[in-house]
Nucleic acid binder design. Sequence first.
DNA 1: TTGTAAGCGTTATCAC
DNA 2: GTGATAACGCTTACAA
Lengths: 332, 332
Amino acid sequence: MTTIYDIAKATEYSITTVSKVLNNYPNVSEKAKKKVLQAVEELGYTPNSSARTLATNKSWMIGVVFAEHLGVGMAHPFFSEVIESFKKQVELYDYDLLFVSRNMGLQKRTYKHLKHRGVDGVVVVQSLGEEAIEYSTSKLPTVFVDMPIEKSSAVYSDNKQGGMLAVDYLYGLGHRKIAHIAGRDTMFTAVERTRGFKLATREKALTIPEQYIVDGGYYSYEGGREAMVRLLGLEDPPTAVFVAGDEMALGAIKVIKEAGLRVPEDISVIGFDDIPLSKHVDPPLTTIRQDKQLIGQQSAVLLLDKINGLSKNNQDKIVPVQLIKRNSCSAL
Amino acid sequence: MTTIYDIAKATEYSITTVSKVLNNYPNVSEKAKKKVLQAVEELGYTPNSSARTLATNKSWMIGVVFAEHLGVGMAHPFFSEVIESFKKQVELYDYDLLFVSRNMGLQKRTYKHLKHRGVDGVVVVQSLGEEAIEYSTSKLPTVFVDMPIEKSSAVYSDNKQGGMLAVDYLYGLGHRKIAHIAGRDTMFTAVERTRGFKLATREKALTIPEQYIVDGGYYSYEGGREAMVRLLGLEDPPTAVFVAGDEMALGAIKVIKEAGLRVPEDISVIGFDDIPLSKHVDPPLTTIRQDKQLIGQQSAVLLLDKINGLSKNNQDKIVPVQLIKRNSCSAL
DNA sequence: TTGTAAGCGTTATCAC
DNA sequence: GTGATAACGCTTACAA
């Protein structure tokens, strides 16, 4: 391996000068600059980032903690888009992303591992909140996606508003018997969406029977299926369903079809997320779109500011959602 | 920050002994072990990986070069699954994944950057092959996904076989006028799939008019649309189409429907990939499934072996594909 | 404008 | 079993 010493030797300058050239410092003669750069080229020198990190205490890496419930990891239709957008933003400032292995036992240890790695910051994507404490009490700049954490920055959609939008839309279509397939209430997003649902139904003075709100688990297709089965088994089934996630909504639609009913003629379904799939399914899914691009980008901005000491205090960024009308809902 | 010096001081042992304990070396007394471990716990010591990497020349990081054509990055429906599987496998051996930024100009520089980062190995996911040379001529252990590279290991599906399977199936259904929407021929996978298509049609003694093979670009939805428009504009349109990618197939189906035709009654469509979407669309897409899980896992195994010096020579791993029958194809 | 030397936190080579 | 000490490749006061 070639080091700055080799360059120094070749150019007959000191390692200090070489280092200065490499880092674009002032106070270096043009001549030295040229010679060094040329030697770098000829010898095929590549700086060693570990050494640099050791000396500067700056790694130019951002740790990514990815903990979703579907078990698909980075293949997650929603989070993968968020992370991609996040990545694009931090790339602008020359950061690389480090996906740490969760192999090493408990989630709590990922924090230790990240410390060990010396990342400059961390983005945590939707965990259950347990180990969140580790991060929020630490000096490590951190931003959470999809979940507000006390004493820490976070970026998430306006989930409550989304729930309300869904109900408003359904109500406008003439629906009065509106059900809700909710996400497991251990997830912040799920709680908020349900809160929006309840708020809006109350606003419209609708009386929603208890059985109209059913737990669909962690936003999975299967969870949607099971929840819809229960809804269909009710004495007085709903004419419309607000499902807290698109995948879950697809499961629900499948069950409705299997029961010989049609969407939206017999039952209207509205989802949440707007994953790539949604516009292609049959019928194209009406849904509340989350702005993954903006969520990722804002998380990056917040984190970068923290890393650079530009923003001392933590802040939450709430990203607007949007109703996307397609064909899975119809007027009553 | 607490270092081994702090531990040494606290335990009244030397840093050598501390280091030995930390690395589970022999020749350390039980007493020393206990004291050290306790101090580590109390002082909340976390080893510094940069220092360790500098001293050992081993980073425990694997670089990921991700260059797909859809421009969706890690949100890519096929590659994200492959990488996730890859990740799971390398996690078993305590490696972390480093996604390097492609910001720094040309692709060629990513190689330099990876060198700079001191990754122990690299997995390259589908690039056009240009900068591939950098990796194949270097000492850096590398594995390519979806593209064979001379003097380097690679893992990819049996694309040719996939093309043949598709034609065989369509032929068995009674189709004789079979068209092919191909991927851009700068991609190895595209070439192979087309080769399989041609081989099989020749085997069946079918005469496929030149216009029946149309370039759909980089496997995109839009590319599929445009290609299908051309196919539909033919004097004597096909009764079946083998589309080299699922997204592209969805675009094609859309166009068929827009033309007032039905799938599969009027035109049968078979795709390639089996992305998550495929089973949910209307009609559920018959397709050639790539085993993403296995591709990712095998890539990891190959790379790890290389890193550990277990396999000197490069090898290619060809992963079998499988015909998944759904409802987008019917007998003539 | 350039160079010397210390320091970053480890591991590794030797002695003891 | 244990401990000095050099080495890994770089940045950075501080001198010159």
